[in-house]
């Protein structure tokens, strides 16, 4: 059963990748904007974070760089869908194509490079000595710890602050919100940019913090899995923990099937995350309606149409 600790540890480390992105996408979607560009933004964040870490040897700059590139991609999506009122689905798909292509294009010189700097695990004094739990939870790098706190902060902002109220009402009833004095357009811009920032950071965590290398297309569908997890988490940042780590755990468990002497073609093991995502989606549909689905999600908001 020593394996179990390894699997749980890996579940948290790999779940963190999608946790950042899931939180980012929840922020964006709660304001009423559906951003399907997650995969592309993640790839840009992963490439740019790695590039900055490689050239400057500064981890902080790598994260900041990935955040900026993610925020810029979010800004593009916001401009397309809010100002130009483009179809949100198509704009997001285009962003994914752009991000996949541009990251592969610029990243070609980074393939096979190794970093001189890396995020080291920081065992938390006292807590890391707790058997099992200490090893699984309190012996990670700083980015994993930040991801522990992030959903709590976002939950607090959503439910206990004026900003959160403005954000949520923009996604539910944009027209009424505008009448109540909320600047829906501004709120949606900010939410889409902030969402992009966290998705960018998730990419940098993947390349710099998790796998410590850059490979073309390395997100391998995690951006899309994120979008499924947002629905699974019912747009609630706290449930996002469960979704992300559960997903990380199931995937790791699947990858370790061989160790349990279960005969299964190895290549097919690689399809496990995607099979799980479909099962997650089936589970959601059987559970019935999602109560927190922002009512105005995906719809263009025409301010002029009032007059």
């Amino acid at each position: 059963m020593i394996d179990l600790i390894t699997i749980l540890y890996a579940a948290i480390a790999s779940g963190t990748i999608i946790l950042y992105a899931t939180i980012g996408e929840i922020i964006t979607e709660r304001s009423g904007i559906l951003n399907l560009g997650v995969e592309g933004i993640m790839l840009m964040g992963a490439f740019f974070g790695f590039y900055v870490a490689y050239t400057t040897e500064s981890l902080l700059l790598a994260i900041i760089g990935a955040a900026i590139i993610g925020g810029l991609m979010g800004l593009i999506h916001a401009f397309m869908t809010i100002t130009l009122q483009a179809n949100q689905v198509v704009s997001g798909l285009a962003l994914t194509m752009f991000g996949s292509g541009a990251s592969a294009f610029f990243g070609i010189n980074m393939v096979g490079k190794t970093l001189k700097v890396s995020f080291e695990a920081i065992p938390i004094p006292f807590f890391s000595k707790i058997p099992v739990l200490g090893e699984v939870i309190f012996n990670h790098n700083i980015l994993v710890y930040c991801a522990f706190i992030l959903p709590l902060i976002v939950w607090f902002i959503f439910n206990r602050t004026k900003w959160g109220l403005a954000l949520r009402s923009s996604g539910e009833e944009p027209l009424s919100s505008e009448i109540m004095g909320i600047k829906v357009i501004k709120v949606r811009y900010i939410a889409t940019i902030v969402g992009g920032i966290f998705i960018g950071i998730s990419g940098a965590y993947l390349s710099v913090g998790y796998s410590k290398l850059w490979v073309e297309g390395m997100t391998a569908g995690r951006g899309w899995i994120t979008i499924a997890l947002v629905i699974f988490a019912n747009w609630n940042p706290l449930i996002a923990y469960g979704g992300a780590y559960l997903f990380g755990g199931l995937t790791q468990l699947g990858l370790n099937l061989q160790k349990f002497n279960i005969a299964f073609p190895i290549v097919l093991l690689k399809s496990i995350p995607y099979v799980f995502t479909i099962l997650f989606l089936l589970f959601i549909s059987l559970k019935g309606k999602r109560s927190n689905l922002p009512k105005a999600l995906g719809e263009s908001y025409f301010r002029e149409s009032r007059g």
């Binding site: 593009i76 397309m80 198509v90 704009s91 285009a94 996949s100 592969a104 294009f105």
Partner: peptide
């Protein structure tokens, strides 16, 4: 690198979808 074409394709969709306005 030929992967620039994927980026350009993404840009073309962005341009077309935003021109709907």
């Amino acid at each position: 690198p030929a992967s620039i074409i994927l980026a350009i394709q993404g840009l073309i969709i962005l341009a077309i979808v935003s021109s709907q306005i």
